[in-house]
Structures are given as C-alpha cells and as structure tokens.
Nucleic acid binder design. Structure first.
Length: 431
RNA sequence: GGAGAGGUGACUGAGUGGCCGAAAGUGCACGAUUGGAAAUCGUGUGGAGGGCUAAAAGCUUUCCCGAGGGUUCGAAUCCCUCCCUCUCCGCCA
C-alpha cells in the first residue's frame, strides 16, 4: 500500500507509474477523499478536546460538591456531534483504504515502459538434438513418472501425480535448493501452508486477487499461493533492529493457485498447475540496501540453474508484466526445447515499502532511533515443477532416457539416468 | 470440542470509573564516577493520525492497555462479541 502523502507529493511520478502499467486510477478522487478525511479529523479533534475539558470540569465540580448537571447536559450534546464527525471520518477512511489496497505499487524509474521485457543476460548452452525433442509430458508419461489421468481422478484437472523416480526427482530438487540457499546464508523456514486474511492482505494477494486463492471457508484461512505470504508475514507488526537486517529466509512450500483467468487452461503438462512446489527466498532490508540485495538474491537463484547445468536467461520486467505489489523485478527464464523458447521459472522482486506498509513491518535505525518501513524482497529459488520440466526436456536423449545432473546424484541415491521400465539399479551402476 | 485462568510499554509487573499513556523494577541509551571495567548515581527512554511551521527542530491536539462494539459527562478499569495464550478433560497423527 502506498502512502497518500507520498502520492500527493509525487503525483507526476505516480501517474507515470500507472501509465507504464497501463492501469487507470483516479488519483484526484483519492486526494479529495483525503482532504475530506482530514477535515473530519480536525473538527472531531477540536470537539473531543472540548469534551475532555468539560469532563475535567465536571470532576472538579463534583469534588467541591457543586452541581455539574448543566455542564453534563452540554457535554451530552457535544458527544452527539462528535459521533457524527466520527462516522463521516470512518466512511472516508474506509474509502481511502479501499482505494489504496487496490492501487499497485509505484515503479522504480528503471522499469521499462512498453510491452516488452528487456533481456539482461543469457547463460548456459542451448542443447542440440539430432532428433526431434519430445515435450516433458510425453517424456514423463513414457517413463511412467508423471500421471495426469489418475491425478484428475483423485482431484481434478490441473493436478499431477509424481511416481517413482519422478517423485524422487521432485524431492531431490527441493532438498538440493534448500541446502544450496542455506549455504548462501538464508535461514530455513517451514511455515504453515494456510494463512489468515490479515496475512494474506499484508503481502498484497487480498483483496484484489481473491479469485486466485483457495479458501477454507469455515475458518477464513487461505491456502498459500506462494511461501512469500507466510514468510513475509513472519515479521508483520514488528519493529526490527537495524543490526538484524538484512534478514534472509528460504522456505519450501507447496503453492495453491486457482488460475481463474481465462488464459492458461490449455497449457500442457505440469507447467501450470493448481498445486506446485516451490522454494522461495525472502529478504527484509533497509531502503538503502534493497536494490543491492535484490542483485544478490537474483544471483543466488541463478546459481541453482548453473549448478543444474540448465540454460537460462534473465529479463528485466516491463511495467505491464510486473506484479501488482512490486516496484521492480527480474524474471529468470529456463530453456524449454520442445517449445523452443524460454519459460519463466523465477521472479525476483523488490517490493520496496509496499508490503511493509500493508503489514506494518518496520525497523529502528541505529543513528537517530527513528522508525522506518523495511523493504521486502523475494524470488523463487526455484519453482520445482518447472525445473523438472527443464530437466526432462533438456537432458533427454534419443533412447528415451533422461540424464540427471551431477549435483542431484547425492539426492537421488546415486541414480544418474531415468529410463523406461523404471529405474535403474542398472543406470546407477553404469557410469 | 468441554471447563477454568489470563492477555497492560522492549521485558517483568502494579493498577476495579476521573489527578493513568499508565507506578515500580529490569533492560537500553547518554552523562557522571574510574587508569579501564563492574558497582553506584543522574538524565532520558512508545506508537499512529491531525494542526501550526517553507522544511527540519519545536509546539499543540486526538487516538492507542489483545481486536471490535456498547454503557457513562468521563473506561486499562463496567457490559457484549471475537481472537490469542496457559492449565485440566475429551479426541487424534
């Protein structure tokens, strides 16, 4: 959530941000509402002040055993007026809050306008095949490690059952990523997979993206769409010490998304699912260091792909594609041979103080002891399902086998190849 | 799920209708003392909104004692609803 005062002072910047995002918002109305609100506060405060004076007087009169009836009557009238102003004020406050909760974050000046992301770098070598590469769904079903039909039977469309070495690979990736990020200095968190509405509003999913969430109706809890929600809310309504910053966390959670939009339903295989696994990086920093920390976070996420030997590129997101709460962000995209394109596998974002305002996450600076909002950052490190897609497709061979990258061998109990007919004690001993 | 006890500032803890944004202690910061430290002494030690001020500083005002309502001229204190924590019982991996 943005600060009305900030918007008032930076109207031009704010309008430019909205334009880059291609979003309409009536800022004049917002400022008018805020003027009205302040008028109510002023009037209300004056009357309350008077009331407090009267109350003291009544107390004094009573103590000197005089009759306070007249002044009590006067005060009763005053209270009615106060209630009117309060009612008006609450109404304006509600409207302002609603407006702000639905207003996206301002953009960092370096966020590109227009429709296109800017490619920042490419790493790794694209694989060359002397046969026509199959897509991951085909590979997964041929190897009997992905089962979509049975998942649909158990739950519905948009779910998958991992079997055998497929399940093993998924689990190996989770552990590998957690271990890597822990070694980079992140603290491991295993949070609840459901969050209440206050937490879900804190990070920006509510109220605007209600349609995207699975809700447990009876308890007013939401299944997490990303670990960002529970982990960022670790410090909701807290005042942190500057010395403790930056705080870096890594968390594995499943992610649940309704994918309610019209588009996306036809995407093949496990690329877009209602439930998928993800390892997420989250940082809390001072405003001075947040962009520096974002660069580090990006490198930490990239390291996963480097170690897995997967080809990828990094793009700077344009205003139109940047998330609602983000001020700036990169996507990491991994190469998908069957589609001959790069596919988003991680988004690394700086939310600046947008989430910390909503969630009231602050810190006390060392020098003056003043309180400021922290900056929050996060990035996938990485989406597991899509990493499986990349491994199956990039490391397939003409004999319908899939090579497991070296760093995963310890996590795969030594398995180096997945092939038809399951596994592969054989493959394990071969080297 | 049932029964009971409780939620007060960074923490411990007092406060049952006005002089309480809140005693006292601990902690923390600064200062004095010391060769330095400990101990001791002194001072300071919340948040949010509004107004005045070009801005900062400062002054002023309102609100905040788990959250939200209510009673009252006046609520941390009385009433109602909800949330959370603890203890006991039940159920369960």
């Amino acid at each position: 959530m943005l600060d009305v005062k900030w918007i008032r002072k930076n109207l031009t910047t704010m309008r430019e941000s909205l334009k880059k995002r291609e979003i309409e918002a009536d800022l004049d109305t917002l400022l008018n509402l805020d003027d009205e609100r302040r008028e109510c506060v002023k009037k209300g405060d004056e009357l309350k002040h008077l009331k407090n004076l009267y109350s003291k007087k009544i107390s004094q009169l009573k103590n000197s055993s005089k009759d306070p009836q007249d002044i009590i009557k006067e005060t009763q009238k005053l209270v009615l007026h106060i209630k009117e102003w309060e009612k008006k004020r609450r109404n304006y406050e509600q409207r302002i809050t609603d407006f702000l909760l639905n207003l996206p974050n301002r953009l960092h000046p370096s966020v590109p306008g227009g429709d296109d992301n800017i490619e920042e770098k490419r790493c790794g070598k694209l694989p060359k095949f002397n046969f026509s590469p199959r897509d991951h769904q085909q590979i997964g079903e041929d190897l009997n490690i992905l089962d979509f039909k049975r998942a649909a039977k158990i739950t519905g469309s948009g779910f998958v059952v991992y079997k055998g070495l497929g399940a093993r690979l998924e689990r190996a990736l989770i552990n590998f990523m957690l271990d890597l990020h822990i070694s980079q200095g992140y603290k491991e968190i295993l949070p609840p997979f459901m969050t209440n509405s206050a937490a879900t509003t804190g990070t920006g999913q509510l109220p605007k993206f209600r349609e995207e969430l699975y809700k447990c109706e009876r308890d007013d809890y939401y299944l997490v769409p990303t670990a960002e929600v529970p982990v960022t809310n670790l410090h909701r309504e807290e005042i942190l010490k500057e010395d403790d910053l930056p705080l870096s966390y890594v968390a594995y959670t499943p992610c649940f998304r309704r994918e309610a939009g019209a588009y996306g339903k036809k995407i093949k295989g496990i690329i877009r699912q209602h439930q998928f696994n993800k390892v997420e990086l989250v940082k809390f920093t001072t405003p001075q260091t947040s962009y520096e920390e974002l660069e580090k976070l990006l490198l930490d996420a990239e390291e996963v792909l480097k170690k897995l030997e997967l080809p990828y590129r990094v793009v700077r997101l344009c205003g139109k594609e940047l998330g609602f709460s983000a001020a700036f962000g990169y996507d990491i995209e991994v190469w998908i041979p069957s589609q001959k394109r790069f596919l988003e596998i991680s988004t690394c974002s700086n939310f600046e103080d947008y989430q910390s305002r909503r969630a009231s996450i602050r810190y006390r600076d060392k020098e003056k002891g003043l309180i400021h909002y922290v900056h929050t950052l996060n990035g996938s490190g990485l989406a597991i399902g899509r990493t499986v897609v990349a491994i199956l497709e990039n490391f397939q061979d003409e004999n319908e086998r899939v090579r497991i990258p070296d760093v995963l061998h310890p996590y795969m109990n030594g398995v180096k190849l997945i092939e038809r007919g399951g596994v592969s004690e054989l493959a394990r001993s071969r080297s």
